[in-house]
């Protein structure tokens, strides 16, 4: 039964996220005073990619592509989507973070398997950036876990129930800021899209992908975005009913797009340094506040 819910979740994720991607491209276009594509343009791109023929650089190149898409789809199943939980109790924060890691490891392996140095440089940049954005985010959530004594995401959502004032956005403002910055890092949106820098390293890891491999990678990217933004919404905005959840989701994602539409790109040396300056400091302060003073968890309005 829960496997069916999981499958349903994957379909919902695909449909919702890809349409939202269309709107997102429309919004970026409007920011650049352009007309922008139709809403279903991303569907077209994905299906066009699957319709084309493709080349294969050996076993690990194909296996990695399958592993990355498979891993990310598995993670979608575990993420609570506005109350629908496929396996209740098993949606542990660390499990989700590390299943995401399966996805990125698969992509890294197949990218390097393609033999193109640009792909290796792209993978190196992706992993370096991951060290950057992952640690502050986990510290903030670590504070939350200690505060509430549970690391299951649906439990953290229930804690924020009851109106706007109980959201973690207000209970832990610094945590929310750090969460949003590392969300931008996870999504590889403009300031942090060093791994897939089309101008510098010919779209990084994706350089050798064409046809169905490219299609699978685009799907994986969509599912990964769904998970990361879903994670942020659950943890910081207390994802309520389906409509409320989707509105919050769209709001967060479009807000991130607007920011990324106007910003330039970091140099890779600066990315880690940037993440370990302000965001890490904020996350440590936030975790210290939660752990030692309990403000935002026990002591709240």
């Amino acid at each position: 039964m829960s496997y069916l819910i999981g499958l349903m979740l994957i379909v919902i994720a695909f449909l919702w996220q890809v349409t939202l991607e269309g709107f997102q491209r429309k919004v970026t276009a409007k920011v650049q005073r352009r007309v922008g594509p139709r809403w279903y343009q991303t569907f077209m791109d994905i299906f066009k990619a699957f319709s084309k023929s493709s080349i294969s650089h050996g076993f690990i190149y194909d296996f990695g592509a399958m592993m990355t898409l498979g891993g990310t789809m598995a993670t979608v199943v575990f993420l609570p989507f506005s109350g629908i939980v496929a396996f209740n109790g098993l949606d542990n924060f660390f499990v989700i973070i590390y299943l995401l890691a399966v996805g990125s490891l698969g992509m890294a392996m197949s990218a390097v398997g393609s033999g193109n140095p640009w792909a290796s440089i792209g993978v190196m940049r992706a992993l370096t950036q991951m060290v950057g954005y992952e640690v502050p985010f986990m510290i903030v959530v670590f504070g939350m876990i200690f505060g509430y004594g549970t690391s299951s995401i649906s439990a953290l959502v229930e804690v924020q129930a009851g109106g706007f004032l109980n959201w973690h956005l207000l209970r832990m403002p610094l945590g929310a800021i750090v969460g949003f910055i590392s969300l931008m890092g996870m999504l590889a949106k403009k300031p942090y899209d060093t791994p897939i820098a089309p101008a510098e390293i010919a779209s990084g890891p994706l350089v050798e992908y064409g046809g169905k491999h490219l299609g699978m990678l685009m799907l994986q990217h969509e599912f990964a975005v769904f998970i990361e933004v879903g994670l942020f919404v659950n943890l910081f905005l207390g994802g309520g009913g389906i409509v409320a959840y989707l509105i919050k989701y769209a709001a967060v994602y479009l807000f991130a797009t607007i920011i990324s539409a106007v910003l330039g790109r970091f140099k890779i040396e600066q990315v880690v340094y940037h993440f370990y300056k302000v965001p890490l400091a904020l996350s440590l302060i936030q975790a210290a506040v939660v752990i030692f003073t309990g403000l935002g968890v026990e002591i709240w309005l």
Binding site: R25, R34, V35, G36, S203, Y209
Partner: peptide, 15 residues
């Protein structure tokens, strides 16, 4: 705005 009709620049011939 070429993107209106669904066209976009790509960096590599594979894509």
């Amino acid at each position: 705005d070429m993107e209106r009709i669904g066209m976009g620049p790509m960096a590599t011939p594979r894509q």
